[in-house]
Design a protein around this nucleic acid. Structure first.
Lengths: 342, 342
DNA sequence: TTGTACGCGTTATCAC
DNA sequence: GTGATAACGCGTACAA
């Protein structure tokens, strides 16, 4: 059974009017008798009329729909971004169609394809870990198609981006550990093709240097999967392999920070007395683990709102992307909890 | 700048053919010379032709899009369900448009409205905590519009539902606590208008009775928000207000279970030696808290796949909802960790 | 083997 | 104050 939606024609037939009159009456056009308007609206109500957005899209070559492409919904951070996106989009009369790539480049490309088929007006993208070249983005950008990148942003010309201050967040996290008297600080690093990983690494290094410590590459260990299991293994190995046992860990995300914490506890080390730990993102569970985990808060909701606002402004031609650099960097905030204070 | 998509007409013009010939050639209709097909396809490639899904929707009165309405994406459980939904939908050629209600009834209703305007072919719903009457669902169902409910399902006629065995999960969780020697077990209960809450409560009560314990209403405490803070407060109060101190906690979700755990630790009680705790859902962080949290696993991904399969089968008329009860109950599994084993 | 005409729902434009 | 027509992109019954 398909839902038989009443159309303008149905209303017109019932009232012996033309479709155009009905259309005008519904939209309160001048030059329609108020009597007619009344009758039309009553009938629309009675037939439970709902404008057909598909027909409107076809007519206007505008779908009032934006696409969102993210790696995974299960990430707490992305969940909060989504909330921000929906908030802004709905309040401005746009729909949102969402796909996750599961970190696969193929999915990323096919998502864009189907979205274009569906005549989306623009797209918000945070790309996958597999993505290393950006041809599928830049070809669209060159045609003037509105794209705003958030969080995981490519370094290509004309790209409009919304990020957080990853460098600053990493810097203050590391500085905080140093201030607490931790000096042999390792960094569990994210995938190097993501700019956020690079920035967090740079922030870590800068803080060390400013504290008179020359960063040692051996103290930067890859945790590219970003899972707690991986971090647990890596950290366990780390505690034995380095010439000096690390006494601080700055991790590129919270899952890995918790993994590191578990590894430390399993090795008989006390957190924070023996090892100080700081994560990145401030996920829900930071306040639930024991000891509670210090972390760098990223304003996910705000990022969603801001990216969407930029995209819709672009779509609605409230600015031209070439006119000015509209890219945005949002502030982070270090949330100090027990895992890093001794 | 709008993206100037090439249309069938463009291809036709370039090749001095009619639009219909191009259309047929692209779809490999018989009775088109292979030479023409070749030329058309080459030109389609060259112009980067993409069929306009909007036009197709209008023509077929089918959008090949399904709607998904959930309370919140930030819930780990719902995130996994979404993954399952996307998986099944995409593999069968459908798009997904997602909205979250933020537990608001108004948002739920308006979401349905905009989705209907967008001519979705069917909808998957897990309703909000505010929803207590189901007129906005049943009126659609009566018109034969395909709706499949998952997880939070209403008890209305004709509703097709996919749930997990909440009763069974709660029963085995409680039984497990009893078997471990905990006997004064409280239940942190969810909102009573949700059937899942009722079932989890019933499972808890049944397990107690089967163990010769008559359930005491005073031992069932509301935790309707479902947050860890709320649970922490409630539990702290609980530890002092009851005539006998509880030695076991079965909570209706994991956040509240962790809140309870924190309250117990803060009160100087050891988990699991003094108090055994079991949660529900098996969120990511269960293995990250200390002690690790026992919980009832719900197959979220599978739930997404199954609900979507049912919905699409209905849409594609592979079954008529009135013919048979197609509702599905998925098995849960108790994951025993440290918080409940002494 | 290919072309013509029409309709899906809506609205801008021109006509009366 | 209201009606007829055309157009958005596509597919198909019918005609040639």
């Amino acid at each position: 059974m398909k839902l038989e939606q009443a159309t303008i024609k149905d209303i017109a037939r019932e009232l012996n009017l033309s479709a155009s009159t009905v259309s005008r009456a519904l939209k309160n056009y001048p030059g329609i008798s108020s009597e007619t308007k009344r009758k039309v609206k009553a009938m629309a109500e009675k037939l439970n009329y709902r404008p057909n957005a598909i027909a409107l899209s076809l007519r206007h070559s505008r779908s009032f729909t934006i696409g969102v492409i993210i790696p995974e919904v299960v990430h707490f951070f992305f969940s909060t971004v989504i909330s921000g996106i929906e908030e802004e989009a709905f309040s401005r009369g746009y729909n949102v169609i969402l796909t996750q790539t599961n970190e696969k480049l193929i999915r990323e490309k096919s998502s864009i394809d189907t979205m274009l088929s569906n005549q989306i007006d623009g797209v918000l993208i945070s790309y996958s870990k597999e993505t290393t070249e950006f041809g599928h983005f830049s070809s669209l950008l060159e045609k003037g198609f509105p794209i705003v990148f958030f969080d995981r942003v490519p370094e290509i010309p004309k790209a409009i981006t919304v990020t957080v201050d990853d460098f600053g967040g990493a810097y203050s996290a590391t500085k905080h550990l140093l201030n607490q008297g931790f000096s042999r600080i390792v960094h569990l690093a994210g995938p190097p093709n993501l700019k956020i990983s690079q920035e967090r690494l740079r922030g870590y290094q800068a803080a060390l240097r400013d504290h008179g410590i020359e960063p040692d590459p051996a103290w930067v260990v890859p945790c590219f999967l970003g899972t707690d299991q991986e971090a647990q293994q890596v950290t366990t190995k780390l505690l034995h392999s380095l010439p000096q046992r690390p006494d601080g860990i700055f991790s590129h995300n919270d899952m890995t920070a918790v993994g590191a914490m578990m590894a430390c506890k399993a090795a008989g080390l006390r957190v924070p007395q023996d090892v100080g730990i700081v994560g990145f993102s401030n996920w829900q569970f930071c306040s639930m683990v024991d000891p509670t985990l210090s972390s760098v808060y990223q304003p996910g909701f705000e990022m969603g709102v801001k990216s969407t606002a930029l995209l819709l402004d672009w779509i609605e031609k409230k600015f031209k992307p070439e006119e000015a650099d509209k890219s945005v960097i949002l502030d982070t905030e270090l949330i100090v909890r027990k895992s890093s204070v001794r």
